[in-house]
């Protein structure tokens, strides 16, 4: 008996999900951050964020097709975290790292928060 593991599978599938997002194929939710709107797939958001997991497993909220985030969330920070969800790459510009970290805290993404903390401490 054998088993073949395609080691690139996870990243190849994630790249295709990001292609679906950029072509707005089967996206099923709009995230409103202040005045900016972001289309996404609920399943990808739930797989990455504790907050979205809680929202979309709540029978009263799982059918919503638009979610407004707290106005304290920075749209640029959210855009970077959303891009991370779909690419595994977190862009850390000096001017935005706090916005990114605060967005990750709000979205309950502890591993990203911890990594941002370590990055900030190491660059101090």
């Amino acid at each position: 008996d054998s088993c073949i593991q395609f080691t690139r599978h996870a990243s190849d599938v994630l790249l295709n999900l990001n292609r679906l997002r950029s072509r707005d194929i089967l996206t099923d939710v709009t995230i409103l951050v202040n005045r900016q709107q972001f289309r996404a797939h609920k399943t990808v958001l739930m797989a990455c964020s504790g907050l979205f997991y809680t929202i979309f497993t709540d029978s009263l909220k799982c059918n919503l097709n638009a979610i407004s985030l707290d106005p304290k969330v920075d749209p640029e920070g959210f855009a970077i975290v959303l891009e991370f969800m779909y690419t595994s790459r977190l862009t850390l510009k000096e001017s935005l790292i706090m916005a990114v970290m605060n967005t990750a805290i709000y979205l309950q993404m502890d591993h990203v928060v911890d990594t941002c903390h370590r990055f900030i401490k190491s660059s101090d």
Partner: peptide, 22 residues
């Protein structure tokens, strides 16, 4: 250097784990 920026490889867990059942 990947894509012109300094890329740091983080080997740890990236996102939460969804429980098998709630």
């Amino acid at each position: 250097y990947e894509g012109g920026v300094n890329t740091i490889k983080e080997m740890g867990r990236s996102v939460h784990e969804i429980p098998r059942q709630d």
